[in-house]
Design a protein around this nucleic acid. Sequence first.
DNA 1: TTTAGCACTTGAACGAGTCGAGTGCTAAAA
DNA 2: TTTTAGCACTCGACTCGTTCAAGTGCTAAA
Lengths: 346, 346
Amino acid sequence: MLTKRQSDILQAIVRHYTSTGQPVGSKVLADNLPERVSSATIRNEMASLEEMGLIAKEHSSSGRVPSTVGYRYYVDNLLDQQAVHESDVAIIQNSFGQDFNKIDEIVARSADILSDLTTFTTFTLKPEQKMARLSGFRLVPLGNQQVMAIIVTDSGDVESQNFTIPRDMNTDELESVIRLINDQLSGLPLTEVLTRLQQDIPFKIKDYMHSPNGVLDIFDNILSHASSERFFVGGKMNLLGFSHNHDPNTLQALYGLLDQNERLSTVLDPLDDSINVRIGSEISNELLDDFSLITATYDVDQYGKGIIAVLGPTRMPYSRTIGLVSAFRQELAKQMLDYYHRYYDQ
Amino acid sequence: MLTKRQSDILQAIVRHYTSTGQPVGSKVLADNLPERVSSATIRNEMASLEEMGLIAKEHSSSGRVPSTVGYRYYVDNLLDQQAVHESDVAIIQNSFGQDFNKIDEIVARSADILSDLTTFTTFTLKPEQKMARLSGFRLVPLGNQQVMAIIVTDSGDVESQNFTIPRDMNTDELESVIRLINDQLSGLPLTEVLTRLQQDIPFKIKDYMHSPNGVLDIFDNILSHASSERFFVGGKMNLLGFSHNHDPNTLQALYGLLDQNERLSTVLDPLDDSINVRIGSEISNELLDDFSLITATYDVDQYGKGIIAVLGPTRMPYSRTIGLVSAFRQELAKQMLDYYHRYYDQ
DNA sequence: TTTAGCACTTGAACGAGTCGAGTGCTAAAA
DNA sequence: TTTTAGCACTCGACTCGTTCAAGTGCTAAA
């Protein structure tokens, strides 16, 4: 456990370092502490803090820099009341237009707004659609053997995909299959729809058409697309600004990571419903050792929970960023509820 | 006009510099020229070349580097027969799958293939759709006030967009409008459809519905989307590798440019149907002074002409890159024709 | 016209010296 | 016992001079 003075010193070090980027020495600290003590005393205290692993030197006679553990302690114990600027709240509210036609549009826009505010890179995920139920398949002929398949869920998600009908496929057959699917699978959760599509449906379809494989692949394809979770990434290029490492290869690797949804989702998984901060090596991913990740869920009542996340440098203004995330998750939840109410309640 | 020996020297300088990135001195050149001359002679010749503005020194005692004018001369007069490696041709052919459901997919894939091959950044634009004709509007109700509007052109382009019907809008009214539009506008070129939508159609619609504005905006919106030209960008992140300038601000500005289609299209406009090379300052855009841009059209017969382009460093292997572009435009045209034939000829 | 030779220029790499900001430690003061 | 003043020490950043290699331009001879 730290003494009051040690806390003060650690806090001052983090504040100073995150805002200037320079290691902090005993003299500067002496001028910035609430109680006046000499630089020598501070040096002694810093020696203790270093022994505890909270701060570190870059070289033997440099000032101190917070370590991962130090940031951790700061975030857990020394954070300001996360006061969110009213102007920021106003910006958030005004940035959402009202002309959203899809949940995805809200989510994508969210990532951009949040990255503009924080100047970092952000991720957003819409509420889990796992429990969403199939409300209908549609098939729209486009002429010339082309067909657009559309799947709609009761949570308002729409996924469409074009495909081409094999020449040997009969349109009537296709229509009956669609009817069958709508009859049998409407109202079921997407997960179950997927399994049914692989199990009993092929069996039943046999009666209607002679080559059912191609069609089912299409449904499979579009369905798994609809039920797959895709992160929207905002402010990708901000990374260039706050990454310390400007080596092209490292950057390319990082950007590769941002494009791989599977890898992202393991990294961004929020542990609980609070605002979660992972610092440097705590984000078990070598590429992200110099970054901090703030993740949070947002709760859209019966429509499920989504995720927002901010990726910034370890030396980020934690208080401000956490405040922004906190304000943002609320506003986002509100926007989504608005959206759902506008279109689905009556 | 350059003497044979001057040509040889310029050629050797460009070759050497593009492959090593190091300024080239008289000694190295002496070893690499077809006819054996002393380094002193070469120094004299280089002095002439420099006076003509074809090469330049980085500092008073450094080797020479090609200038923009020098590259220009090289590209115009000294290029190898652009022999394309058979293996590259094979790669191009194999990289196109056959499971394309949309022209856009082919175009997007093209940008990726070409950027992988060149290791540079590439742009592709599908054949001009200006002359494409509207073959139909579709309107698919998705439930809960939501509707998906689909527009299909005779060139097989499909554009869809969700929107929400205002509560005061009558579905029957909407249907009659759709019918009207299909009746009146099918078969017309998209450009004309756009103007008609703004001129006589609103007048006619008045009879069918009391608040025509919202609907027409939607049509307008989706139509201009369909007829807008959008470049696909491949290998964005390759830019990190070949840009000399690693300054985050410059990079961000560059990436900003890649996302602005309007600005791109002024830059990428190919002057004619040959393969066009613009070097450094010739690409009238300050941001691109250290880059070279190779643009070319590809010709898909009656379906129009599209554009492909490669953005690389001024010191790129011109011969190889031009060869690749040349082979690629042919294969791409073939792929598109295949696609069209597969789906539109009977 | 070409070439050998030579004086000259330049950036890169290296070491020595200085400076400033920081440290740890000791011994005296509180 | 805690705090502080003082001091020797360390290290990176910077400057300066030196050396080295790779170039150059120019001159005079071949």
